[in-house]
Design a protein around this nucleic acid. Structure first.
Lengths: 352, 352
DNA sequence: CCTATTTCTGACAACGTTGTCCACTCCATT
DNA sequence: AATGGAGTGGACAACGTTGTCAGAAATAGG
């Protein structure tokens, strides 16, 4: 009687209808739980029974439905990663490193790109929370993460990378942007520059603000004034960066003439700046934040302040899983050093 | 009585215990299904009732558990992407494009890197199948995908990208590697080269084999012999590529002397080749498969056979969702053209 | 004022798995 | 022969949601 409710599917596999443990149990002539035991390698099953179950499994093409398992167990064995753009050469290795850590812990990675849009970040994060990911790694775009508080206190471990969380206390793994920028500018100053421009990312982004602070600190420590026209923050789209670079290099509207050196705030900006400088007669010094592939083969090779994106990702992943394993300490902030790699472009003297 | 079975949690939120619709219903004084209706924006709820439910939802910090929803509905609204390495500059934009398509269809993307290991690919894919992703986009590493047959016939839509599936019929979105390589080599021949080397990826990888075929075709069409030492296939790790490049350029063991031009089989190989050539006195012509950032700013600028990774990803995603929407046509193979971009390195004459 | 219709609401049973708990078999002890 | 204890196997109830269906309330029509 009950059979009429659902089409028979005990022995035949039909399109879109997958066999369940119940089907396997029926076919093997055992109980439901015994199938579960075999599938999960639990003890207490006779070799003979196990064999019968295995046969039924392969015959039916059974594969455990993890959705049901997840619902029952409460753990999803997956973590979410939300970042600005998966395709950015800085974030791609970071993402890969998080994936490796997840894999080592048997978890899958679900990721989403926020496109530097706070609202989209929020949507993504909440969608991941609804799926009950065990943990979240976030490179935040938004400027208010209080929306995450209920989720975190409900048990979703959360680690921020590259930039800290806004308006909440949470774990964060960061690079020392301030010191990196300061060293970069000091390097230019040491090579004789006095008019140095800084082209950075949107000012609301923490790293951009920190790097600007580092720039100002280095200038101040050297007793150099900073003309307002030497600082340009904004989106990293090439047109805007190009315009700002050209303006600074022309020295229009700036007090003491055009800049003789540039500090660029991230790899996207650096690449555009390299293009601008390549079109110039005179040689302008350049120090770029973030190392990038082939930087050493350009003419001149590009001096950079290198971060280690893969290490950022790895640390974030490790911190996340430590949390998941129950470490209930206060939120921690890990700061990784940057490394100045002189290659040539930063050692060009003024007006050469 | 039943209450003793489970700790009371109707009104208080406790760490790790999330409120359910039942809790919301109890608090709002309505039935379970009414909460479900409100949460899903289904019609048939009085504004007043809706308000009460909404209040309960915010008061308790309720968020729907998508695991349960997925189990019930049978659709996960997520697709899986398995590729070689998320951090590879060729695959990163491809992945991003797939993500965009998924997003447009309200789906999340779960991805995993196979590290060019067939077994790891299989594990990943099956893990994704166990999660009942709605569809899969695969850049295959393995050489036998029959293990996917039961999954596909059980309804998991599958699209292969960049390389076709092995031993099964399945949708695939590819670049025209053969024609690309042939044009690249023809370009070098047109500039006077007769001894041209090819450094490619592992021969079991479809694109590597196709590009080799294109190389041979072009040589043959020009009536040029191919010395065995001019072809080197293998893993893309820099040391091996460097060794092969140096061997070809030295011309040890080759019939007619060292090669005067190189065709490189993908962006990883090209980058290493560029480094090798940069250390040389004489100038060697180079055409590289895959465009890469800054190729135009190197000295000399690098001539490439460009693919469009983002387009590959987008097409694959679109094809996948068309399948999911029920198009039951035969498996289709989409082949995208490549584009030769002359920039300088490919136009260097022999012995310059 | 009563019935017929429409709206709104809630009980209940799935979805496919795992955890708990009890029953049974088989053998080695008393 | 009765008892105890492993070692197996299976019934049943969760997990939190959604679909079905029927009942209750409200409205309209006579």
């Amino acid at each position: 009687m009950a059979d009429t409710a659902r089409p028979a599917r005990t022995s035949q596999r039909r399109y879109g209808l997958r066999p369940t443990m119940k089907d396997v149990a029926a076919r093997a002539g055992v109980g439901l739980k015994t199938v579960s035991r075999v599938v999960n390698g639990e003890p207490g099953v006779t070799p003979d029974t196990e064999r019968r179950v295995q046969e039924a499994i392969t015959a039916l093409g059974f594969r455990r439905n993890d959705s049901a398992r997840i619902l029952r167990k409460g753990r999803t064995a997956s973590i979410g990663l939300v970042l600005e753009d998966l395709a950015d050469p800085f974030y791609a290795p970071l993402s890969r490193a998080v994936e490796e850590v997840a894999r080592a812990h048997g978890a899958l990675l679900i990721n989403g790109s926020s496109a530097e849009d706070g609202e989209r970040e929020r949507e993504l994060v909440l969608a991941l929370c609804a799926r009950r990911v065990d943990g979240l790694v976030i490179i935040p775009a938004g400027d208010d993460h209080r929306y995450l508080e209920p989720e975190i206190s409900a048990g979703i471990a959360t680690v921020f990378v590259d930039r800290p969380a806004a308006r909440i206390e949470a774990d964060a793994v960061l690079s020392d942007s301030f010191t990196g920028a300061r060293e970069g500018v000091a390097h230019l100053i040491a090579h004789g520059h006095r008019r140095i421009g800084f082209i950075g990312d949107l000012p609301r982004i923490h790293t951009a603000a920190e790097r600007l602070r580092g720039y100002r600190a280095a200038m101040e420590e050297a007793g150099l004034p900073v003309d307002g026209s030497w600082v340009a923050l904004g989106p990293t789209d090439p047109a805007r960066v190009r315009a700002d670079a050209e303006r600074m290099l022309a020295g229009r509207g700036s007090a003491g003439g055009p800049v003789t050196a540039l500090l660029t705030g991230n790899n996207r900006v650096t690449v555009t700046a390299v293009r601008v400088l390549a079109g110039l007669e005179r040689r302008v010094a350049l120090v770029g934040f973030d190392d990038f592939e082939l930087a050493d083969l350009l003419t001149p090779p590009v001096t950079v302040i290198a971060q280690e994106p893969a290490l950022l990702g790895r640390r974030a992943g490790e911190l996340l899983f430590r949390r998941l394993e129950g470490a209930g300490e206060a939120p921690r902030r890990v700061v990784l050093p940057t490394r100045l790699i002189p290659r040539g472009s930063g050692e060009i003297p003024p007006y050469s």
